[in-house]
Amino acid sequence: MRALVQRVTKASVTVDDTVVGQIDHGMLALIGVEADDDAARADKLLHKLLHYRMFADDDGRMNCNLQQVEGGLLLVSQFTLVASTAKGLRPSFSSAAPPAHGRALFEHLVDAAGRAWPHMATGRFGADMQVALVNDGPVTFMLET
Score class of each variant (00 low, 15 high):
Asn135Tyr: 06
Thr145Ala: 02
Thr9Asn: 07
Gly32Glu: 06
Leu81Ala: 12
Ser94His: 05
Phe106Gln: 14
Arg7Ser: 03
Asp57Asn: 15
Gln68Leu: 10
Phe141Tyr: 07
Pro91Ile: 01
Leu66Thr: 09
Leu74Ser: 01
Asp111Val: 13
Val8Arg: 04
Gln6Gly: 01
Gln22Ser: 15
Phe125Val: 13
Thr18Ser: 08
His47Lys: 07
Arg115Glu: 09
Pro138Gly: 02
Gly88Cys: 10
Leu75Ile: 03
Leu4Cys: 06
Lys48Gly: 07
Ala121Asp: 03
Val19Met: 11
Ala96Asp: 06
Pro138His: 05
Arg124Met: 12
Ala96Lys: 00
Ser84Leu: 10
Ser12Phe: 05
Ala29Thr: 05
His119Ile: 13
Arg115Ile: 08
Thr14Met: 09
Asp59Leu: 14
Glu144Ala: 03
Ser92Tyr: 02
Asp58Ser: 14
Thr9Ser: 14
Gln6Arg: 11
Val134Cys: 04
Val139Phe: 02
Ala35Gln: 09
Asn63Glu: 15
Ala39His: 04
Thr9Leu: 11
Ile23Asp: 15
Met62Val: 08
Asp37Cys: 01
Phe93Met: 13
Glu34Pro: 00
Glu34Cys: 06
Leu50Gly: 08
Arg103Ala: 14
Met1Asn: 03
Ala97Arg: 00
Arg2Lys: 10
Met142Ile: 04
Phe79Met: 08
Ala132Thr: 07
Ala40Ser: 12
Lys87Glu: 09
Ala11Met: 01
Gln130Tyr: 05
Thr14Phe: 06
Ala100Asp: 13
Phe106Ser: 07
Arg53Gln: 14
Met54Asn: 09
Ala113Gly: 02
His119Thr: 13
Asn135Phe: 00
Arg41Met: 03
Ala29Asp: 03
Thr145Gln: 00
Lys48Trp: 04
Ala97Leu: 05
Ala112Val: 00
Val15Trp: 03
Thr18Trp: 03
Asp37Thr: 00
Ala3Lys: 02
Gln78Gly: 12
Ser77Tyr: 03
Asp111Lys: 13
Gly102Arg: 14
His101Lys: 08
Phe55Trp: 02
Asp38Asn: 15
Ala35Asn: 08
Asp58Gln: 13
Gly60Met: 10
Met62Thr: 11
Gln6Glu: 13
Asp38Thr: 00
His47Asp: 15
Ala11Glu: 04
Ala127Lys: 12
Gly21Lys: 01
Met1Trp: 00
Asp136Pro: 01
Gly123Cys: 05
Pro99Ser: 11
Leu81Gly: 06
Trp117Asn: 07
Gly137Cys: 08
Leu49Lys: 06
Leu73Tyr: 05
Ala116Tyr: 02
Met120Asn: 08
Lys48Gln: 12
Asn65Ser: 15
His47Trp: 06
Val139Thr: 12
Phe55Ile: 04
Arg53Met: 13
Gly71Thr: 09
Gly114Asn: 11
Asn65Leu: 15
Lys87Trp: 05
Asp58Arg: 12
Met62Ile: 08
Asp17Tyr: 05
Cys64Gln: 14
Thr122Arg: 09
Ile23Pro: 14
Asn63Arg: 14
Asp24Ala: 15
Arg61Pro: 02
Met1Pro: 00
Gly126Gln: 13
Thr145Trp: 00
Pro98Gln: 01
Tyr52Arg: 11
Leu30Glu: 14
Arg103Ser: 10
Gly126Pro: 08
Ala83Asp: 10
Val76Lys: 00
Ser92Ile: 01
Ala113Thr: 11
Val134Met: 08
Pro91Gln: 09
Phe93Ser: 09
Gln78Ser: 10
Met129Leu: 11
Thr14Ala: 10
Met27Ser: 12
Asp57Ser: 13
Asp111Cys: 10
Met142Val: 05
Val76His: 05
Gly102Pro: 03
